[in-house]
Amino acid sequence: MAYASPLLRDPARTYREIDLAGRTAAADGPALVQLLYEELTQALRVAAWAADHKQFATRSERVTRATAILFALEANLDFEKGGDVSRILARFYTGCRKQVIEASLGTEGARFRAVAAELEEIAGAWRQARAA
């Protein structure tokens, strides 16, 4: 029995992954952080939709994606240059991860949307800082 790769079975997913790979390859540090915030909030919004619609496999996939992005954001904080800001962000990312994991144990999307909203505030501040 031949098995098709998941990418071949889901052309839309393949396109999204190729698009993301292209955008991350061209992104510098600040642009990459912005892209990670966008991907993170999108993952949380899809997890919320999936929870509301009992699409548990999709919810699980998006929770995994969101927590991986949160780990990546935290792992790349520069505590020497960032000082207090880096420490505050580290605590924030840890708290967000905890909220995402707790939300994944439930069956409603509201908690995912709440975390996404918090992250969108940070992403907005990040955009403004980059534009200045």
Rank of each mutant, 00 (worst) to 15 (best):
A2P: 13
T64S: 11
T67R: 02
Q128K: 14
E17R: 00
T94K: 12
R16F: 00
E102K: 03
I88W: 07
D10M: 07
A131N: 07
E74Y: 02
A31G: 12
I122A: 13
E118F: 05
K98T: 14
V33G: 05
A125N: 08
A131P: 03
Y3T: 10
T94C: 15
F79Q: 04
R87M: 11
R9I: 04
A132M: 09
E80A: 01
D28N: 10
A21G: 06
A27V: 14
I101E: 13
K81L: 10
E102R: 05
Y93D: 14
P30S: 12
I18K: 02
A4D: 06
D28H: 05
G22D: 05
W49S: 11
V85G: 06
L77P: 09
G109D: 04
Y93W: 09
L77A: 09
V46N: 05
I88M: 13
G22I: 08
D78M: 02
L119V: 09
P30G: 12
A2L: 07
P11T: 02
E80L: 00
Q34M: 09
A132K: 04
S104C: 07
D19F: 09
A21R: 00
E61S: 03
A123P: 03
E80K: 03
A12P: 07
T24Y: 02
T94D: 15
D19N: 14
Q34S: 14
A57M: 07
V46G: 04
Y37I: 11
V33I: 14
R127P: 06
Q55S: 11
A114K: 09
L40P: 01
L32Y: 13
L77V: 11
R65G: 03
K54W: 14
E61F: 00
E120W: 01
L20N: 08
A12K: 10
V33A: 08
V85A: 12
I88A: 10
A43C: 02
G124R: 06
S104G: 11
R97P: 00
G124Q: 05
D10N: 15
D28V: 07
A21I: 01
G109S: 08
G106P: 06
L20F: 12
Q128T: 15
A125W: 04
R23F: 03
I101S: 10
A132N: 10
T94H: 15
L7V: 01
K98Q: 13
S86P: 13
D19E: 15
R45A: 14
I18H: 04
E39I: 13
A125I: 13
F79M: 05
E80V: 01
F79D: 03
A90R: 04
W126E: 07
C96V: 06
I69N: 01
D84C: 02
E17N: 00
L73Y: 03
A4C: 05
L40I: 11
A25K: 08
